[in-house]
Design a protein around this nucleic acid. Structure first.
Lengths: 158, 158
DNA sequence: TTCCCTGCAAACGGTTTGCACCCCA
DNA sequence: TGGGGTGCAAACCGTTTGCAGGGAA
């Protein structure tokens, strides 16, 4: 669901420029790598993933670049309980299921729910606060993998 | 809103026992300290807060104990973007506003919204997943402190 | 006595930083 | 050429862990 289409190099370059980021070699590579990740990923995964193609790319650059991407709105961060940062290349509204048994984080897309919350916040507003975005974290346990093609099935990730 | 009432020592002792935790000196102190914290706090804050009363209390014990408390359901963890763990002594359903300007995390209590989401999840269910709990993170910016005593006012915290 | 808990201190691992060099606009 | 970006490596800092001593039932 995320990482759906990896844009061609020109488009990537364009996106970086649009975001106000100088399209350097490293940024192009890191952005492409991020889009190619399935689900959530951390800085280390990006670093390791690029080791083969760019052995001289430094870990520090990866951290700095991911941070810049988040700030520019090219990536999102996943909010977790862990002391470890997770990124998400998927920008469209979705939520996360946290399986307390396995620790895995599963993407959960439910436009109806998103809209519900969205509308609620829009109509009631929050006094003294301007809302940009929101993220619903749902905690629980994965059940026996029934996979009955129900209406609201999670999308297994990471 | 949280830390509302700090139970007396006997009650604290009782809660620990109920949670299946041996009520040791250290646990009693740490639990009391946690309940006394306003809003969100990290392990370091607890450690520092107890330094005066219990100089021999070790940092490791604080970490282990807070973890045990979370596991026992005596505390919650706040899910954040940061690589740093935050705890919350408030167990009743509430959400968090993340101010992207100041970085502060503000408690946001809105029973109507909680119920709305609650009911939605209960009625639709999530295929293959059993929901225990949820937490809504709202990102945005604090506005000019108007404080017009609106219906849905955030509760400033940490 | 037994088992769990704690203190201590070292190790860990993810993240940040200072600095000199490099590169793109 | 100027100013931001990068590589490198060390420093940071929150967190975890192994182990020996301690405490409550």
């Amino acid at each position: 669901m995320q990482s759906a289409t990896i844009p061609d190099p020109t488009a990537i370059r364009q996106r970086l420029s649009d975001a106000g980021l100088k399209p350097t070699q490293q940024r192009l590579m890191i952005y492409a790598a991020a889009l190619g990740m399935h689900g959530h990923f951390d800085a280390e995964a990006v670093y390791m993933g690029l080791q083969a193609d760019a052995p001289s790319l430094s870990r520090g650059t990866v951290y700095r670049t991911l941070e810049a991407f988040v700030e520019a709105g090219l990536l999102k961060q996943v909010s977790t309980h862990e002391s470890h940062m997770l990124f998400d290349a998927s920008l469209h509204p979705h939520h996360h299921l946290f399986c307390e048994t396995t620790g895995e984080i599963i993407d959960f897309e439910d436009p109806e729910l998103s809209t519900l919350i969205q509308n609620y916040l829009a109509s009631k507003g929050i006094d003294g606060f301007e809302v940009d975005d929101f993220q619903l974290n749902i905690f629980g346990r994965r059940k026996g993998m029934a996979a009955t093609a129900g209406q609201a099935a999670p999308h297994p990730t990471v």
